[in-house]
Design a protein around this nucleic acid. Structure first.
Lengths: 347, 347
DNA sequence: GAACGTGTCTATAGCGGTTCAGTCGATTTT
DNA sequence: AAAATCGACTGAACCGCTATAGACACGTTC
């Protein structure tokens, strides 16, 4: 194989070296801006490389140098695909992340899995094959098996969840307990004494935290014992839960939902069952996407900026990747009560 | 949880081979389900590999075999991050894609960029470094510069857009022309003679196609010349466009929007300006996410299942990756008119 | 003038896999 | 019984690059 004009075929460092009349080693040095080649030689090499349209093969490079430089951030979500599209939370969260990644020329490697075991597996695979330089982890449970797994891998990680759940991993979280307490106090102030909560799966850490705060706040105010209905966050289950609550003997006069999808569904159910909102029943949503402003009446909600939250998470991760694990994380602003048309004084 | 790790960390094929009492070659064969090892040996090798927690190093693998097997699909979007979270279309589209990828253990590599040049660059980088095994490309313009670039790279690709725009790349598209025509005929049948369209950027191919069909349908029915207002698809611009249309001397009696966000915003504007919907003004949305059912009155829309559409795109791409470029693509079901509360006979 | 730096550049040994020409028994064919 | 066939398995040659020890020419220093 000699200096044939390399038609269309793959160019390698060897060919560049030969054409430039130097060794492969010199080409490598020149391409990586390392000392050891004279300015003249370096320039010549770069010229030839450009001429041949050569770019170093990433695989070969990372094989020999161990240090791969990929610009990908991982995100594994253990929920059904359909939910991603329907839950405004995830989209806003992801777009917040992307807003930070984009300005740093990073991409998001997104994967949906069935369960935590698969999640750990995927994560491990990504780490090993060096497909990501860091990762964002969500939906922590109590004693989450991912915590030890993530500590073991040396991959930079930011956990989304309360420090109680994330076992010392750098975290960003919202103070759900405080928000729930505010919500309960607000409803109590409106005269409600029989509250219910349509929450997420009890296994989910933040759902458990909210439930606990809810029960505590209700007890603290001497309200009637609260009913908690667990769901999978879907509109269907939100509707079903609402239907069950409203059909029960001592139906609640106020319901607090764990996201806005379920609140929207709950509002429809109330209407369909002839329960007047907000005169007979108050509803309070969580997350507060644009959905809440569109219903009739518009939904009162515990509002927080999920886009900014996602961006914050990404920013922390980039910081850790750049400067090592300096920060331990921090809380994001507590959700704020935005009263609209679905909460009112009990008549 | 997993394997007893093993000091030092990095496990290589050599170690697995030694521990299993076979050669590196056999391990490779066993791991890749290739013939040449007995069932017993294969099983033993796999056991040892799992025990050591070994997974083949991607870089090494792709170096030697040229054919890398990464399970990532690329998607580059040249739009601002904020829009991703707000536009139900993208989220549904992405979750549809994920629904197919998940069952095939694939991930989505998602990147937001500023412009087409950057998009080509990113794409090229992904291809070269073998980070993806295929890609989905959206938002085609007329004479899109990505078409030649994509043809040049041998990467499997599915284009989302009408064949007129995608220059022979395998494509999936919706017959927007037919849908627009149906919409116009419907509005005309309700007695509307002064229509307007709030569309996307004219540079965008599918937007241009819709505009052309719109103008043609309007002309074909001898309606008054139609007004077209271009936007960037955002709610703000949708509101502004609607405001301008309604404030004009000869205001239209029906407006057709290019997505549902703008239709929702437009409905608010009409209400705020005291224009009665649907008695004085009919509004027709596009895409039809859950938003359309929440407004008051609920939005009539040209409805199509974006989730299924995304899944279809992903399925075609997986097919091409598996069996080579067999299919040329196909049209997805044409959007269907769903009349709700914002369209009515002109009184 | 011998020993020592110094700055360039070369040769070569890996990195961790895949691939393939062979080796080696056991089984089948002649 | 010898030859041919066959499946299982090995050994070594790559893949394209980086890292590093050494070769070489050219001053310096003592």
């Amino acid at each position: 194989m000699s200096s044939r004009a390399h038609p269309g075929g793959k160019v390698t460092i060897a060919e560049v070296a030969q054409r430039a009349g130097v060794s492969k080693g010199s080409v490598s040095l020149a391409m990586n801006d390392k000392p050891g080649v004279s300015a003249a030689t370096r320039e010549k090499i770069l010229r030839v490389a450009k001429e041949l349209g050569w770019l170093p093969n990433q695989a070969a490079r990372s094989l020999s140098s161990a240090s791969t430089q990929v610009n990908n951030i991982g995100l594994v979500i253990a929920r059904p695909a359909r939910m991603l599209g329907l839950e405004p939370f995830y989209m806003e969260f992801i777009s917040g992340i992307e807003s930070v990644l984009a300005e740093r020329s990073h991409s998001l490697l997104l994967r949906l899995v069935r369960d935590v075991e698969e999640e750990i597996e995927v994560h491990d695979g990504w780490g090993r094959s060096k497909q990501i330089s860091g990762s964002i982890v969500v939906d922590f449970t109590v004693d989450d098996p991912r915590v030890p797994a993530l500590r073991a891998s040396r991959l930079p990680v930011v956990a989304v969840g309360h420090p109680d759940l994330t076992g010392g991993l750098p975290s960003v979280w919202t103070d759900d307990g405080a928000a729930i307490t505010e919500a309960v106090h607000y409803l109590a102030a409106l005269g409600h004494r029989r509250l219910a909560r349509v929450g997420g799966p009890p296994s989910l850490g933040h759902s458990a935290i909210r439930t606990e705060a809810f029960v505590k706040a209700v007890a603290g105010l001497n309200l009637e014992p609260a009913r908690i209905v667990p769901t999978d966050f879907s509109g269907e289950q939100g509707a079903r839960a609402t239907r069950a609550l409203l059909a029960s003997a001592q139906r609640p006069t106020a319901i607090l939902y764990d996201n806005d999808i379920m609140a929207v569904a709950g509002l429809s159910v109330a209407t369909e069952m002839g329960v007047a909102v907000p005169t007979e029943l108050s509803l309070l949503a969580w997350d507060d996407s644009q959905l809440c402003r569109l219903t009739h009446p518009p939904l009162s909600a515990m509002s927080h900026d999920v886009f900014v939250f996602g961006a914050e998470v990404a920013r922390l991760l980039m910081g850790i990747i750049d400067h090592g694990e300096a920060e331990a994380g921090h809380a994001a602003p507590t959700p704020v009560l935005v009263p609209r048309g679905t909460t009112a004084r009990l008549r």
